[in-house]
């Protein structure tokens, strides 16, 4: 089951939810959920959590990879509409379809950033995880995050 959870769930119209589902239909049926957490200043941070998206299959398929980029772009644009100021959309892709869990985290402030981030991410995932069959290491958790200071994807294995 593919799920997208976000803390702006209540701000998204039914039409926008349908747009998300339609754009993501290549992956299968997507359900959109509410995600909330308590904390100071969190209402200004947009969090979007993707669950059930099998990254290995998506990376191997150019169409799916492109669709994932477009889906994130759409959610970013919907988020921008909800606020009158520049927004930061934080994305977490959680993939538990392999023996090892994969977590990809990053944030975007401009739609144009998505392309570069995804290009580098694809290379990183292929080189550090999939080409070495590391996703089959049972019980391991891969945490792939983007380090803005060095502008590089980092992989942490837990």
């Amino acid at each position: 089951m593919l799920k997208i959870s976000t803390n702006i769930f209540k701000k998204i119209s039914e039409e926008e939810k349908k747009d998300i589902q339609n754009l993501g239909k290549d992956f299968g049926s997507i359900s959109v959920h509410d995600y909330s957490e308590k904390g100071i200043g969190l209402e200004e941070v947009i969090k979007v959590i993707f669950q059930g998206f099998a990254l290995k299959g998506i990376i191997e398929n150019t169409v799916l990879w492109g669709s994932l980029k477009e889906l994130i772009g759409l959610i970013f644009n919907i988020s921008v509409k909800k606020f009158d100021k520049p927004v930061e959309v934080q994305v977490w892709i959680s993939d538990a379809s392999n023996l090892a869990a994969l977590n990809v985290v990053f944030s975007i402030k401009k739609e144009s950033e998505i392309h570069d981030l995804f290009t580098a991410l694809r290379i990183k995932l292929n080189e550090d995880v999939f080409s070495k069959g590391k996703e089959q290491e049972k019980g391991k958790i891969f945490w792939i995050a983007f380090d803005k200071e060095n502008e590089d994807w980092l992989v942490k294995v837990l």
Partner: peptide
Amino acid sequence: INFGYELNYDLIGEYQRLFA
């Protein structure tokens, strides 16, 4: 922390670099 998702995703890369 209740869930890892509660972390600031923008800073996880920094955490990984500093921790390393």
